[in-house]
């Protein structure tokens, strides 16, 4: 087998591109779940963000406005979920699934006149000399802005959850909303903010697919990325830094198998594609086997409705 033609640098660069949308969506969902809310509507928020970002970019010619629109779009959609689950106390699983369906349909409707259009191209970091350095130049210093932004969000979420008072409150709400309420924290408000953050992240991740990764608008184009993001949160056992690992694993295996095939390496694609899901299942089994560890990681109030009277 000739692996010499496999360019690890190019591979790493495409891997980061493939991993960025699922990492963004997963980070958002992680914060949502840490606050005790299970939002299964990630796919719907992603696709809606994808079309909002695409449409605004095309209409205004500015990808920056597009990115902002994508985040707003994702947030608005997530807040409908927030309203349903936090004020009307509807079932989170059903509302989340409905959000996915609604997002897919709404995006298809909005996107009808945007098929086959090329969006304005997205600027990439280009620092003279540094971006041209071998190996670290292409890997570290020549991406689009969103890749760097996603790392800032990653670091921010990690720091926020572990080292800030706000993060502590959010986790308290996720662990036991009754106790948090008794302490005087606004459970619903905290959760709504978390849901909105999750929506913005998912919207941004969707826009990354439609503006940078592909780049075009096609109905249903996120093709399940939102569900993978949900799997990554579990895989990461609700720890932000492991989300990066999960996103690179899920995204990386896809990229790796495509590149290995282009090289003509004999591999069984089906097994490779299955691998991340198998790992997720194994993680779930390990977690459930050790009840102490599970109770440390999975938010105890995940998916439970809260009302001050109860």
């Amino acid at each position: 087998m000739d692996f010499s033609a496999l360019n690890p640098v190019a591979l790493m660069v495409t891997l980061m591109v493939a991993a960025t949308p699922i990492m963004l969506a997963a980070l958002g969902e992680l914060v949502v779940e840490k606050s005790g809310v299970l939002n299964l509507g990630v796919e719907g928020m992603m696709i809606f963000g994808a079309i909002c970002g695409f449409a605004v970019s095309v209409d205004t010619g500015s990808v920056w406005l597009g990115i902002i629109a994508a985040m707003i779009g994702g947030t608005l959609l997530s807040l409908t979920f927030g309203f349903l689950t936090q004020y009307l106390l509807s079932n989170q699983v059903a509302s989340g699934l409905a959000l996915t369906l609604f997002g897919l349909g709404l995006a298809a409707l909005v996107g009808q006149s945007y098929t086959g259009i090329k969006p304005p191209s997205f600027p990439k970091l280009d620092i003279p000399f540094i971006s041209d350095l071998p190996v670290i130049g292409p890997i570290l210093f020549s991406h689009d802005f969103i890749v760097y932004f996603s790392f800032i969000i990653l670091g921010g979420v990690w720091y926020f959850l572990n080292y800030t008072r706000g993060g502590l409150i959010l986790r308290a709400v996720g662990e036991s909303h009754d106790a948090a309420h008794a302490l005087g924290y606004k459970v619903v408000r905290v959760r709504l903010m978390a849901i909105a953050f999750g929506g913005a992240c998912a919207g941004l991740g969707g826009a990354y697919v439609s503006l940078i990764r592909v780049p075009q608008w096609t109905e249903g184009m996120t093709a399940g990325a939102g569900w993978i993001a949900l799997a990554i949160v579990v895989f990461a056992s609700w720890k932000p830094l492991r989300v990066l690992l999960g996103a690179w694993l899920f995204g990386g295996i896809t990229i790796l198998q495509l590149n290995l095939q282009a090289l003509g390496v004999e591999i069984d694609v089906a097994y490779l594609s299955m691998a991340p899901y198998l790992v997720t299942i194994i993680v779930l089994v390990i977690m459930s086997a050790d009840s102490k560890r599970a109770s440390l990681n999975a938010p105890a109030s995940l998916g439970k409705a809260f009302h001050a009277s109860s």
């Binding site: 495409t14 493939a18 990764r213 090289l263």
Partner: peptide
Amino acid sequence: MKVIWAYTWFDPGKEADATSALLDQGV
């Protein structure tokens, strides 16, 4: 000719990634 099996009929992200992988190999 280099052949990539995508194992999907419709997944724009993956189709784009497959295109990139082929281009990286000089196609």
